[in-house]
Amino acid sequence: MISFLNQHLAFILPILYKIALAAGLLFGAHLVSKLCLVSLEKGLHKIKNIDDTFLPVTKLMMQYLVYGIAGLFILNLFGVNTASIVTLVGVGGLSIGLALKDMLSNVASGLALLMLRPFRNGDAVEAGGVSGVIKEIGLFTTRLQTFSGVYVCVPNNLFWSNSILNYSRNKKRRFEIQVPLTYFDSLDSAMTALNEVLSSEPRLLDDPAPQLFVKKLNFSAVVLEMRAWVKTAEYWDVYWSVNQKVKAVMEQGKMAVPLLRKEIQIQKDAD
């Protein structure tokens, strides 16, 4: 065994030296990655309007970059032609990109969503026939929970290629409630009663002021419309409350809802 080592010592020592250097490079890459992640997290938190959803993906990309550079140094250390590898990776990446264009489209869409931020975690959104509350935005998919509590995983391309309705972005929203009125009822009395409903709701915003007007004249009814602005967080509570108060006005006999009816005339031949 000793004679074997003596004979091959000149060959073994350089290999052990390179292995030790490779291990050192990996350890250094780990330290650099940790340092970069900490600095990145602190730096992003100091920037205003940076969404928390942007941080996990940025940290993951930073780790890939640091370890990728360390891998190239290690290959070069063992005498591997890294230039040819880079060329091979480029050609292979092009082929893989063509084969996985839909997946890469989701990655590009995910990066665009993270940069432009049409929505954030916790926002109530609707896009491409899917609606719910955003839970997490990833590179490939966006995970949300529907308003009925169902978990949905949506490809990012679906969001990016469709119009996005964000119900949580603005601080206030307007609701509209249409109230049909028969032609036999007094318009002035009905509008007075509905104005009292709007005045009795303290959560309505004064600017813009609530509105009540005749929306349209149908064949069987006069359609009144109530419009008012509320805080986004209180939208549904106020909307349901106003509807309940309108129903109470109807029960008090101050206005009646028109009912659709058909008149059938039967004519008999005079024989």
Rank of each mutant, 00 (worst) to 15 (best):
K34Y: 07
H45R: 14
K18W: 06
L31C: 05
L55T: 14
C36P: 03
E41Y: 04
D51I: 03
K34G: 09
Y17V: 14
I15Q: 05
V32S: 04
L40G: 07
D52V: 11
F54L: 15
K42A: 13
T53G: 04
L35E: 08
A20T: 12
N49R: 05
L26W: 07
G24A: 12
G28A: 12
A29T: 01
A22G: 08
A23E: 07
L26T: 04
K34C: 05
N49T: 01
E41S: 06
S39C: 02
K42F: 02
S33L: 10
F27V: 00
F54E: 11
D52P: 09
I50Q: 13
C36I: 12
L44K: 07
Y17Q: 15
F27M: 04
G24P: 03
V38T: 06
I50V: 13
N49V: 00
S33C: 15
I15V: 12
G28L: 13
A23M: 15
F27E: 00
K42H: 12
H45W: 03
A22L: 06
G28K: 08
N49F: 08
L16H: 08
F54D: 10
V32L: 13
K34E: 09
L40R: 04
V38Y: 10
K48F: 05
V32A: 14
K46W: 06
K48V: 02
K48Q: 12
K46I: 07
L55F: 07
G24Y: 01
L31K: 11
S33W: 01
D51S: 13
G43V: 00
S33R: 01
L44Y: 06
L31S: 11
I19Y: 02
Y17I: 14
G43I: 02
V38S: 04
A29C: 06
L55K: 15
L21F: 05
Y17A: 15
L21I: 08
K18Y: 08
N49K: 10
L31Y: 12
F54R: 15
I47M: 15
K42V: 09
K18V: 01
I47K: 15
D51F: 02
I47P: 13
I47E: 15
F54A: 15
S33G: 10
T53S: 10
F54C: 09
I19L: 15
F54S: 12
N49A: 10
I50D: 11
L35P: 00
L25M: 15
S33F: 12
N49Y: 06
N49M: 04
L40F: 04
L16W: 10
S33H: 03
L16A: 13
I50L: 14
I19R: 01
L16V: 04
I47W: 14
S33D: 11
A29P: 06
D51V: 07
C36G: 05
A20D: 01
N49S: 07
